[in-house]
Design a protein around this nucleic acid. Structure first.
Lengths: 208, 208
DNA sequence: TGTGAATCGAAACGGATCGTATCGTATCTT
DNA sequence: AAGATACGATACGATCCGTTTCGATTCACA
């Protein structure tokens, strides 16, 4: 079943979908928008489905008809806005385009995206369905894009050929998520640049 | 007040501590042990204080007399076992002792420590008091130790002198927490070694 | 030895929220 | 017009929270 909105197909083993009053797309958007606003204002934990229903001017049943629980609604409210994610752009070198993408990601994390990603990641620790949804809809697409770019950097001789692109991602992006999730300092451009350059150049000297 | 066990001093502005029946140290340990076991078995979210009380054979009031909430009990149940943390040991080079410490940390994360750290970190996103306690009792002590070692590595010429030790920590340990919190692959020794060596050597070539 | 003080277990409390169910009304398809 | 589904309102049982009360217990100290 997963965390996707319930469709008429998976909701129950109901007969063919024809007939009946259709669901209101307007209510759908109202629910997602309200959820987005409330979670940003009050935090994931403080928001209840009853609160969302009341604020959106909708009955609880209408929400439960479409999503199985709060995490699913928030997940949709989030992906509804974020879209496909921060893309890589061409630049002078491939490595440079990676640095700029890291900056773009940090910038989005400084705003509402960061707040919601943080909440969803934390909640996913307690909710396997949400974890799966985040993995499929957030993490994996981004990692796949990054791997392609890193492989290109390796092909062009900008990165060592023996490194595993997966490890490169962990080293470059691990610190960003680390800071995001711990509130361990602002994700400034300066920080991103330092992480990038330090990782590229390496920590060690010839003596190590 | 914080997340520490309530003491007679901070519990209320009660008069001097003399007199009265003393708290049972045996119950204290029973509560912590039960909490530890239950959280490992059922997960942080699934465990309730009522369940802990029932299993430990203790009344709810006895728990609330000592801790303000569930997170605080789990935090104590955890630090009660973990002790001061994985230490750095002397080795052939300072860098080598860092690698070995990373391995030791990964090993502890493969066991019950990892399960509890993960749960506490996630929960701390929703609980500022817990976040503060984790910062003070877990993160900061470890970072302080690591900084000293990294500075030593720099002094001995094993690491570049222009790098910020804080950034070194983020680059080396960020990936470990990243994997831990996402369940993104096992924290094997091989993984640790790859991250360490890749970070030490650097991702880039002379062309980047 | 007894007296005060705090702890203990048991139990009940109000409150929040969950997810479900019921019912009458509204709205769409055929 | 008939059938099917969405919708709002409302109630429900359940769980857990954190607090409170009570009588009984256990200790320190005079």
């Amino acid at each position: 079943m997963g965390l996707s909105p319930r469709t008429k197909a998976n909701q129950t083993e109901m007969q063919a979908v024809r007939g009946g009053r259709p669901r209101s797309e307007q209510l759908h958007q109202a629910i997602l928008q309200t959820t987005f606003d409330l979670v940003l204002r009050d935090g994931f934990r403080a928001v209840s489905l009853e609160g969302i229903a009341a604020t959106a001017g909708v009955s609880k049943a209408t929400i439960y008809r479409r999503w199985p629980n709060k995490a699913a609604v928030v997940m949709d409210a989030f992906t509804n806005k974020v879209g496909s994610g921060t893309l890589f752009h061409k630049s002078s070198t491939v490595a440079e385009s990676i640095r700029l993408q890291m900056r773009a990601m940090a910038k989005s994390f400084r705003g509402s995206d960061g707040t919601l990603v943080k909440a969803l990641l934390a909640e996913s620790e307690f909710d396997p369905e949400l974890a799966k949804a985040l993995q499929e809809r957030w993490t994996l697409p981004r990692r796949r894009m990054a791997i392609l770019v890193i492989q290109e950097a390796i092909r062009k001789g900008e990165m060592h050929s023996e490194v595993d692109p997966e490890d490169v991602i962990d080293i470059l992006y691990g610190p960003i998520y680390y800071r995001l999730q711990r509130n361990a300092g602002a994700l400034t451009n300066a920080y991103i640049d330092r992480i990038f350059h330090t990782a590229m150049k390496g920590l060690g000297t010839k003596n190590s």
